[in-house]
Simulated assay, not measured.
Amino acid sequence: MSSAGAWSSGLLDCCDDAGLCCLTCFCPCVTFGRVAEIVSGGERSCGAAGAIYVLIAALTRCQWIYSCTYRARLRTQYALPDAPCCDCCVHLCCSPCALTQEYRELKARGFDPEAGWEANADKGNAPGAQQMGR
Rank of each mutant, 00 (worst) to 15 (best):
W64K: 01
R73M: 14
G50R: 08
P84A: 05
T76M: 05
T24S: 04
L20H: 06
Y66M: 05
F32Q: 10
G33P: 15
L80E: 05
Y70P: 05
G19S: 15
A51V: 03
D17V: 11
R61E: 00
P81L: 02
R44D: 06
A79W: 00
G50P: 10
Q77Y: 06
Q77T: 03
Y53F: 15
A36Y: 12
I52C: 06
T31W: 06
A72Q: 13
R73D: 14
T76D: 12
D82E: 12
V54D: 04
C21D: 11
T24K: 01
Y78V: 02
C21P: 01
P81Q: 05
V39K: 09
A83H: 03
C27W: 09
F32G: 09
T24A: 04
A51C: 12
G50V: 09
L23S: 07
A72C: 11
D17F: 02
L80T: 03
G50A: 10
A58L: 07
G41I: 11
A49L: 10
A83T: 14
R44F: 11
G33M: 14
Y66I: 01
D17A: 10
Y53R: 01
R71Y: 01
S45G: 15
Q77W: 03
L59I: 09
R71G: 13
G47H: 02
P84I: 05
I56N: 02
Y53D: 02
A18F: 10
D16G: 12
L59W: 07
V54C: 07
Q63P: 00
E37C: 13
V54E: 02
V30C: 10
L55D: 01
T76C: 08
R73Y: 09
A57H: 03
G19I: 11
D16I: 00
C27Q: 13
Q77I: 00
G47V: 05
L20R: 10
W64M: 00
A36K: 11
L59M: 05
R34T: 12
A51H: 03
G47C: 14
G47I: 05
S45W: 13
Q77A: 15
C86N: 13
C25T: 03
G19M: 09
D87W: 03
D17N: 15
C85A: 15
I52M: 07
G42D: 09
Y78R: 09
V30Q: 08
C85Y: 06
G19T: 14
Y53A: 01
C22V: 13
A72L: 10
G41L: 10
C29A: 12
C68V: 02
A79M: 02
V54L: 07
V35E: 09
Y70D: 14
C22W: 12
E43W: 11
R73P: 02
A36F: 13
Y53E: 02
D82H: 09
S67L: 08
I52P: 01
L55T: 14
E37N: 15
L59R: 03
G33F: 13
A51R: 06
C86G: 06
R71K: 07
G42S: 11
G41T: 12
A57E: 01
S40I: 13
I52G: 06
G50E: 08
Y78T: 04
